[in-house]
Design a protein around this nucleic acid. Sequence first.
DNA 1: GGCCGTTAATAATGCGCATTATCTGATTGA
DNA 2: TCAATCAGATAATGCGCATTATTAACGGCC
Lengths: 343, 343
Amino acid sequence: MPRHRITQADVAAMAGVSQATVSFVLNDSTPAGVRISEETRLRVLDAIRITGYSANPVAQRLAGGRNQILGVFTYEATFPRGGRDFYGPFLVGIEHAAETLGIDILLFTSARVEDGRRRLTRDGWQRLGIADGCLLLGQHEDRGELQHLLDTNYPFVFIGRRGSDGGRLPYVGADYAAATTRAVARLCEGGHERIGYVGPRGTDQPTLDRVDGYRAALKARGLVPRFVEAEDPDQCAAEILDLRLSAVLVAPEHDPDALVAALGDRGVGVPDDVSVLLLGQPHHRRPGATKWSGFTIPREEMGARALLLLSRLVASDGPAPSELHQLLDCTDVEGATVGPAST
Amino acid sequence: MPRHRITQADVAAMAGVSQATVSFVLNDSTPAGVRISEETRLRVLDAIRITGYSANPVAQRLAGGRNQILGVFTYEATFPRGGRDFYGPFLVGIEHAAETLGIDILLFTSARVEDGRRRLTRDGWQRLGIADGCLLLGQHEDRGELQHLLDTNYPFVFIGRRGSDGGRLPYVGADYAAATTRAVARLCEGGHERIGYVGPRGTDQPTLDRVDGYRAALKARGLVPRFVEAEDPDQCAAEILDLRLSAVLVAPEHDPDALVAALGDRGVGVPDDVSVLLLGQPHHRRPGATKWSGFTIPREEMGARALLLLSRLVASDGPAPSELHQLLDCTDVEGATVGPAST
DNA sequence: GGCCGTTAATAATGCGCATTATCTGATTGA
DNA sequence: TCAATCAGATAATGCGCATTATTAACGGCC
């Protein structure tokens, strides 16, 4: 039991070289004018092996190096109480990738909370420095904070597409637009022509992308977009009937269960009278729940790919510019809530 | 440009004092022979406020201080693929406590995997040093590793009771023994006298505690313990009938759903013919699942309490010795799988 | 023999902080 | 009067590493 943890100096002593030499061998680097003979290199490597040396990540980081720690910052609690586990699937992917890459994950749970969401201010910035880079999850980022991030040149990657800032924000997102376009196509194949969009018209990126995909797909077929924005499920159902829609795309945050129930109350069957296609997955999984037609968001893969991208970003050489923005395909789910248009 | 983050030296310059003085003021410490006048103290505090200074956690740690980072080491993947989310509830509690205490969480995902479980060897030890202390989750700890932990004096807390090592391992656990004893009592109140224990006889602490509680409760009532260890559900059912048990305690890792199904195949109803009481919660939550009688393990609270204990352990003054081992009560769940003994 | 270039390394520095040893001037005490 | 105390700080050091500047030995060339 080594009282004093083994340092490069120990290794150096054993190999009969200087601490600097050990550092050079470890980093496989020969900055301007430094040369290490193969013989010495092997001697150092042997000493490393024998002593079981492993770098002190804290010192590494303080000295301006990398320490194989990547941060994860979520704008809301990462593991919320009460079951709604939004970030969970991302974390699964992130952890898996981290394990593969030999990277530790730092959760920035200490960030000050303002207006119910975490902030990246003041001490927040300092703390980011512990890690080589950081993943950012959540919709509630702040313009000023982003600008600061970009200014400081700190490596980061968003999970979820970021349309703003002219492509300066690296991200790994899900292709909501394409998935929504395909969703419309599926309905059209079933003969549907009056296809509505049910859900809040927020300015978050997923909603914007879904609406874009919806609009584009309808336009390509000469159909007219119709939006149902009512919050109340019953009112939604009324509007759907009023507009004589035969199919609707529903944002999953809109409580589709309640909607179907409200439709049922009015004697409208799903999918017999109205087809319902979910633009994502239900937020609450209930026992014996409806088998929704729709698509799944590849959250695990998004997490994994984002971590991989970040680790590339951190590495000295850096990733190809084309990797900076990745859109992953959603997988269509057949389900039982879509049928042919009733004649 | 990482515009030179503000350091103690900057603050010192502004306040017209030395860097050391700033450090003393910040740590509110006056080691042997160092005195700071109230006036100077206030001047420094002002400078800190104005500059928005916040300590660099990396430097703090390298210099032997605390950095408000606590580690979480799980012997298996923290967020396993495929739904089985064992650690999740603990993490919920841990994160909540961390947020409250202003502490960041470091997940040691880089640990080398051997035999399908993570190890705390070599580089693992070094990496622990990033954090002030560490929570340990999982059953598969290694004796040698534990000894090393104790030797190095590194602060740590187990989640889950640790009966070995004569109380030298701090932990926050669930009181399985008491909960199991209460479970037996509940069955006895229903008139049951032939009460079996179904499940693997592992040497993990939860199993040992459950069996202890079972044995003690039966002995207190002059009843005979009967163990059913078969892995195959059908064989289990056969043994239950063979032993003419009217009630069984079932370890949740034993797939109770399959057991009930197997009993049903033999025309044995639950709870009409045999009562089943689960010693914990089902591992897989299935839609439309059985409402099990049993008890819940306060995982969130265990996580939170463990983090709190660890943060105390890290602090210079340290916790009361009585806090080093905490057993939290499980909550009994009524459920629908226990009935009165059939006459 | 003096100069240059090459190879192979080491010494020195600093990252930002905690901590220890040291210094200065004023106020006593005998 | 001169040392002894004490308040109030500062200088110096080191944590373990990455990196820059510097050194040392050696051979070739005119």
